[in-house]
């Protein structure tokens, strides 16, 4: 089954009179349970594609279908609702709310989904445990290392049991060891929970984890094939 289907999608940015086609007629399909890498040189359109799949943006043309629902014509609130229900994000700069503890950051999506307090607490504990941060639940982001912060972000992305987690260069701000840990946690969660991951990266060591590698060049799909990782 397809978690995400991108059909003939283009995205043109207008800056004043200048038009930049960040994506040109891109069609790809992400199957449930995949651990897919999105690679390509800088400016090739990786972030743009992730934002479109993540309903943070709408395509200039073409269709995007997330878990069976066409999201390309949704308005802002409907896209927010879709993100809340179906999509988790992990960003390069961790993107935790600085005033909230690890626990509260992970709890946020559950709060937004209106889960009762008792269930929230149990789920947050379980998630932080799963990313190896059981002992760090009540620390704020500035009291955590980069690797730990990214693991909190992963726990948060997973919190509302999304169909799809999108990670834009999740290891770019981490050292090798922390990057490795983060990738291993993501891979393990992918295998244990079956949640689909799509991550953009430049790093060959990260690409090595992928079950599939989609290569973009100048806003177009240049290659699309099985990755190095054993599925």
């Amino acid at each position: 089954m397809e978690v995400a289907k991108v059909e003939h999608v283009s995205r043109v940015y207008k800056t004043g009179d200048v038009e930049t086609a960040a994506l040109k007629d891109v069609s790809i399909s992400i199957e449930a349970g995949e651990f897919a890498a999105l690679v390509g040189p800088s400016g090739s359109g990786k972030t743009t594609l992730l934002q479109l799949i993540g309903c943070l943006d709408t395509p200039s043309s073409g269709r995007i279908i997330i878990a069976g629902q066409d999201v390309s014509k949704l308005n802002r609130d409907q896209r927010a609702d879709t993100r809340r229900a179906k999509i988790g994000f992990v960003f390069q700069f961790f993107a935790l709310i600085p005033t909230l503890t690890a626990f509260e950051n992970v709890e946020m999506p559950l709060l937004l989904n209106g889960l009762p307090a008792a269930e929230r607490s149990a789920r947050v504990q379980q998630l932080l445990d799963a990313v190896g941060l059981k002992e760090r639940t009540h620390r704020r982001p500035d009291q955590l290392s980069g690797g730990e912060q990214q693991r909190v972000a992963i726990a948060r992305a997973l919190a509302s049991k999304p169909a799809l987690i999108l990670a834009d260069e999740p290891t770019a701000n981490l050292d090798t060891e922390n990057g490795r840990q983060v990738m291993e946690i993501m891979q393990r969660l992918n295998r244990e929970t079956g949640v689909t991951f799509v991550f953009a990266t430049h790093d060959p060591r990260v690409i090595a984890y992928a079950s599939r590698v989609i290569t973009l060049r100048d806003g177009q799909v240049a290659a699309n094939g099985a990755g190095a990782a054993k599925v």
């Binding site: 943070l56 802002r76 609130d77 927010a80 709310i97």
Partner: peptide
């Protein structure tokens, strides 16, 4: 703005 971006990414409606 960052926090607003985060909340928005998490699916909180702008309203």
């Amino acid at each position: 703005t960052r926090e607003i971006g985060i909340l928005s990414a998490l699916g909180m409606r702008s309203g």
